[in-house]
């Protein structure tokens, strides 16, 4: 079944907005909005890691917490607090960010990243990763690069980028592939796939996501610069 988008092109992202330094009491913070999905990330620490057996004497640990707020959307996914799903997303977020961040200066400590979704319309883990990487940079941690993330996939038979909820729930079937990328090197740090699609469709969707990530990168960099220009 062929799917056509009406409001935007197949390779077009939803309108984005980013702001850095949104939470005053956090060491670093950022907001990332894409379409109707809004993610806030707050960074605390480095602080002492408890329980002690989880301490790493070589370097600090990155710990991400993902949470959809109770009022953030509809559907059976929105359940605030810890769940199998939020734990998984916290873990993949850590793994997506770990290759860029250097915490060797802070052994035995933990850096906490709290990602809160105020409003959800699909692509939440990607929005969360975008916000978290900006928040870590805002906190002044040494990083190789920012991390950009966007979902791509196949709706019906059509490869698209940045699916919204109506597309994810498309009755003709949809495959959603969240991608996180280190834009300077093109390394992929997150890729999850659940569904059936052809090799060609996957390649096409990945290409769309890579182009999309570059666009997100510009938005992120501009938001970071804007905060520090103000000061």
């Amino acid at each position: 079944m062929a799917y056509t988008r009406t409001e935007r092109a197949l390779d077009e992202l939803r309108p984005m907005e980013a702001k850095v330094g949104v939470i005053k009491n956090a060491r670093g913070s950022a907001m990332f909005k894409i379409g109707k999905t809004i993610a806030y990330a707050a960074v605390y620490g480095p602080r002492e890691m408890h329980p002690k057996f989880m301490q790493n004497v070589e370097r600090g640990t990155l710990r991400c917490n993902y949470n959809m707020m109770a009022f953030s959307g509809s559907g059976n996914r929105v359940r605030p607090g810890p769940s199998r799903r939020s734990k998984e997303i916290g873990l993949v977020t850590e793994n997506a960010l770990a290759p860029v961040i250097d915490l060797t200066e802070f052994p035995k400590t933990v850096v906490d990243v709290y990602i809160e979704l105020l409003q959800t319309d699909a692509g939440t883990r990607c929005a969360g990763i975008c916000a978290a990487s900006m928040a870590l940079a805002d906190a002044g941690f040494k990083m190789k690069d920012l991390v950009c993330a966007v979902s791509c996939g196949v709706v019906g038979e059509t490869p698209v980028v940045d699916l919204d909820y109506s597309e994810e729930a498309y009755e003709g079937g949809a495959v959603d592939i969240p991608i996180a990328m280190i834009p300077r090197t093109g390394e992929i740090t997150l890729m999850q796939l659940d569904g059936v699609l052809s090799k060609e469709q996957l390649h096409k969707a990945m290409e769309l996501a890579k182009v999309g990530c570059k666009k997100i990168y510009e938005v992120q960099k501009e938001a970071l610069r804007a905060k520090f220009r103000e000061d």
């Binding site: 670093g28 940079a137 805002d138 906190a139 002044g140 040494k142 990083m143 970071l224 520090f228 000061d231």
Partner: peptide, 21 residues
């Protein structure tokens, strides 16, 4: 590697951090 201001000292390129602990 971090948010900062570029400083040049001969051939050395340095980033003076604007945030950090």
């Amino acid at each position: 590697a971090q948010v900062g201001v570029v400083e040049l000292n001969g051939r050395l390129v340095k980033v003076m951090p604007l945030a950090g602990t």
